[in-house]
Computed example of a mutant assay.
Amino acid sequence: MRQYQLKETKEVKKIICNKCGKEIPVVNGRTEEGVFCVDYTWGYFSEKDGERHTFDLCEDCYDEMIRDFRIPVETKG
């Protein structure tokens, strides 16, 4: 007799940069390029209290965003 377990899995099929609309290649659920992913829930002292914001940026859009920082991004490694 065979017994089966039903498995439900979620696999990334496609990622699109929220800023420029570029499609970031995904093969077997893994990205083929760098992608900056944000998943942030705003806190009590914000105008967005309790809102959850999620977005993805391609590497070019990420570089463009941090270029304007007054204090540079800290990098290690």
Score class of each variant (00 low, 15 high):
Leu6Gly: 05
Asp56Pro: 02
Glu74His: 03
Pro25Arg: 07
Cys61Val: 09
Arg30Phe: 00
Asp68Gly: 09
Ile16Asn: 14
Met65Ile: 07
Arg30Ser: 07
Leu57Tyr: 00
Thr54Glu: 14
Tyr62Arg: 07
Val12Leu: 13
Ile66Asp: 13
Lys22Asn: 11
Glu32Lys: 07
Val27Thr: 08
Gln5Ile: 07
Asp63His: 09
Met65Gly: 03
Arg52Thr: 15
Glu8Pro: 02
Trp42Ala: 09
Lys13Glu: 13
Tyr62Met: 13
Gly77Phe: 03
Gln3Ala: 10
Gln3Ser: 05
Val27Lys: 06
Gly77Glu: 09
Tyr62Ser: 06
Asn18Met: 12
Arg67Lys: 13
Arg67Tyr: 09
Asp49Ala: 11
Lys13Ala: 14
Arg67Ala: 15
Lys10Asn: 11
Lys14Cys: 08
Glu64Val: 01
Met1Asp: 14
Gly34Glu: 05
Leu6Cys: 06
Lys7Phe: 03
Cys58Ser: 09
Cys61Gln: 06
Lys19His: 02
Val38Leu: 15
Phe36Asn: 14
Ile24Asn: 01
Thr75Asp: 02
Tyr44Ala: 13
Glu32Leu: 03
Thr31Asn: 10
Glu23Pro: 05
Lys76Ile: 13
Ile71Val: 15
Arg70Met: 03
Asn28Ala: 15
Arg67Asp: 15
Cys61Tyr: 02
Met1Cys: 06
Arg30His: 09
Ser46Asp: 11
Phe55Lys: 01
Glu64Pro: 01
Tyr62Phe: 14
Leu57Met: 08
Arg2Ala: 11
Arg70Gly: 10
Glu59Val: 02
Lys22Gly: 08
